[in-house]
Design a protein around this nucleic acid. Structure first.
Lengths: 214, 214
DNA sequence: AGACTCTGGTTACCGCAAGTAACATGCATG
DNA sequence: CATGCATGTTACTTGCGGTAACCAGAGTCT
C-alpha cells in the first residue's frame, strides 16, 4: 500500500471528522450538554456506530468538541493579553474578552464548564482525579505562564505565578457565572470591579464604623 | 386524628430520612457522584421506591445531601470569618479553613462541586439556567454580605461587594481545585500567595526587564 | 372479632441512552 | 473476478432513573 492512498484516506477521515464535529456542535448548542449520541448522529445524517468509530466514546467526542472551543477562546484571550497597553488595561481587556465570550454564547460556555456528566460504568476510582473543567485548567496555566514571563515577583515566582494564574481565572469564572445568571450590572462595571479587586482595593478599603473590618 | 400521632409520624419519617441520608452519604463517598439509586438503596437496606418516596428524585436526594455538607462547611467558614483578628488574618484563616476542608475530604468536595449531572428528560430549556454548584453561589453570597457589612466601599458598595464575594470565592475554589490535584506547595504557602494576590501584589509587582509587564 | 385504612415495603416493569456485534455495501486494487 | 477495507446499517445488550401495582403488618372503628 502506497502512502498516497493512505494520505487520501487520512484526509477524508479528517474531513468527515470535522463534519461530524460541526453537527455535534449544532446539536449540543441546541440541546445542551447531555445531548444524546443518537441525536448527534441524526443531525449528522448518520447513525451511532460511526460516531463511536470516530471518537471512541461520548467522552471522546465531547473532548474533541471542547478542545475546539477552548482553543478558540484561548486564542482571543491571548490576543487581549498581548495587546499594547499598560497592565491594568490588559487585565481589563482580558476580563472583558472572556466575559464577552460567555455572554455571546452561554450555551458553549455551559458546555465547556460541564463536560463530565456521570460516568456510567467501569471507571470507578475517580477518587480525586478529574476536577474542574479542562478549560479552567488551561486558562490558569496559560495565565500563569504570562505572569511569570512578564512580572518580576522575586523568589518563588514560579509557584506564585501559578497560584495567581489559577486563582485569577477562578475569580473571573465564578464572577462571570454569577453575573451571567443575575445580570446585576453592565459588563463594564463588572470588569472594573474585578480589576479593582485585583488592584488591592479590598486591602485598602476602610472599616465600616462600629466594628473590625473583614 | 390527634396532633400527637401526627407529630410522632413526622418524627419517625424524619429519623428515617436522616438514616437514608447517612447511607447515601456513605455510598457517595465511596463510589463518587453518579452513585446509582440502587446502590444507595441497597446500602440503606431497602429498595429504590422508598428513596423516591422520600426525596422525589435523584436530584432531590443529592440536593438534600449537598445541603448538609454545604451547611457544615459554611458554618466553619463563618467561624473563621468572625474570628477576632485583623483583616488579613481573617482572610487567611478563611482560605485555610476552606482548603483544610477540601483537603480532608476530597470526595465530599468533588461531590459538592458536581451535583448536576445530565438532566435525563423533560426539563429542556435549561438554556442559561443552572450554572455552577450551589455551594459556590452560597459561599459567594455569604462573603458578599460580610464584605458589605464590614467594609466601607463608598457608592455602589452593594454591587461591588457581591462581585467581590463571588470573585474571591471563585479564586479560592479554582486555586484549591488545582492545588488539590497537583499539590505543588504546602497549604500555608498557597494561603499566603492567594492573600498576597488579594492584597494587590499583582498591581504592585514590577515589570521584568525587556518588555511591558502583564 | 372482623372490616378499614395508613404506612413502609417489594417486585416487576417502562423508557431511554450508551455502547457493541454482526451484517451489508461500495470501491479500489491484485 | 475476487479480495480487502472503509463506511454504513440494523438490531441487540446492559444499566439506570423513575413508576405502577401489589403486599403485609399495626392501629382504629363499629
Amino acid at each position: 500500500m502506497d502512502t498516497t492512498q493512505r494520505t487520501d484516506q487520512q484526509r477524508s477521515a479528517d474531513r468527515r471528522r470535522r463534519e461530524l464535529l460541526e453537527a455535534a456542535d449544532r446539536v449540543v448548542l441546541r440541546d445542551g450538554p447531555g445531548a444524546s449520541m443518537n441525536a448527534i448522529a441524526a443531525e449528522a445524517g448518520i447513525t451511532k456506530p460511526i460516531l463511536y468509530r470516530h471518537f471512541g466514546d461520548k467522552g471522546g467526542l465531547y473532548a474533541a468538541l471542547a478542545k475546539r472551543h477552548t482553543d478558540a477562546l484561548l486564542d482571543s484571550l491571548r490576543a487581549a493579553l498581548d495587546a499594547p497597553a499598560d497592565r491594568r488595561e490588559r487585565v481589563e481587556a482580558t476580563l472583558d474578552t472572556y466575559l464577552s465570550a460567555i455572554e455571546a454564547r452561554p450555551q458553549v460556555y455551559r458546555f465547556l464548564m460541564h463536560p463530565a456528566e456521570g460516568s456510567p460504568s467501569g471507571d470507578q476510582g475517580f477518587d480525586v482525579g478529574k476536577h474542574s473543567a479542562p478549560l479552567l485548567r488551561r486558562m490558569g496555566e496559560e495565565l500563569a505562564q504570562v505572569i511569570e514571563e512578564r512580572l518580576d515577583l522575586g523568589p518563588g515566582s514560579h509557584q506564585l505565578a501559578r497560584v495567581w494564574g489559577h486563582g485569577i481565572v477562578g475569580m473571573m469564572h465564578a464572577a462571570g457565572d454569577w453575573w451571567l445568571g443575575e445580570r446585576p450590572c453592565s459588563r463594564a462595571e463588572l470588569v472594573r470591579s474585578l480589576a479593582d479587586l485585583l488592584w488591592g482595593r479590598l486591602a485598602a478599603a476602610g472599616d465600616k464604623v462600629g466594628g473590625p473590618g473583614f
